[in-house]
């Protein structure tokens, strides 16, 4: 019986994980749960930066899915549906909450408004644990209301240079009163 192989050096693990497909971030999540050293590696800013840079050189940023606003027949209310385009998201729990409405996108994150609760519980970020590059295509048409140009452009970037919500643009939305 052959002895178990010696553990791979962290640099080797990094070289392997950095080659995971960027359009299937759930596979990196699986790797992060293998053991604590892998989790530390995948969660480290250095790894995330390298992962982004590595794939940016070879492939355009992937679109993982988009949000679609669907009007209900004979009703003024609308449902927000998440349409996945990546195998990682056959179902995205937060995005299908009927009382949540996606109102903005910035630096690859999506801002939700919980229509049933108070201002204090207004902000939700998804996905909180996923590594970049995270790109959500959020077109003006799909939201049913105009998107600020700066926000739409930002949503195609894979990396945050500053706080994602340093200057949210909300003036175009009917939910202004809630967001103020």
């Amino acid at each position: 019986m052959a002895p178990p192989p010696p553990p791979l050096a962290e640099e080797i693990i990094e070289e392997i994980l950095i080659r995971f497909p960027p359009d299937d971030p759930a596979s990196l999540l699986g790797a992060a749960l293998v053991c604590k050293p892998w989790c530390r590696l995948v969660c480290s800013p250095v790894f995330r930066h390298r992962f982004t840079e590595f794939h940016r050189r070879t492939t355009p940023p992937p679109v993982l899915g988009f949000f679609c606003c669907v009007s209900k027949p004979r009703s003024a209310s609308k449902d927000i549906h998440f349409i996945p385009t990546s195998p990682s998201f056959r179902r995205l729990p937060h995005a299908i909450m009927p009382n949540w409405r996606a109102v903005d996108a910035l630096h690859g994150r999506v801002l939700f408004c919980d229509m049933d609760t108070s201002v204090d519980e207004l902000l939700r970020l998804i996905p909180p644990t996923a590594p970049p590059p995270f790109v959500w295509s959020l077109s003006p048409q799909s939201m049913g209301s105009p998107m600020p140009a700066s926000t739409h452009r930002s949503s195609t970037r894979g990396e945050c240079q500053s706080s994602p919500y340093s200057s949210p643009r909300v003036s175009a939305y009917p939910e202004d009163a809630l967001l103020a």
Partner: peptide
């Protein structure tokens, strides 16, 4: 590294451990 990544991507954490011959957790 690309070959190993292709072998383990999309697998559950336990499957990855088995594939790489990790001892049981």
């Amino acid at each position: 590294a690309k070959k190993v990544a292709d072998m383990i991507k999309g697998k559950s954490p336990m499957e990855i451990r088995r594939t790489l011959g990790f001892p049981d957790p």
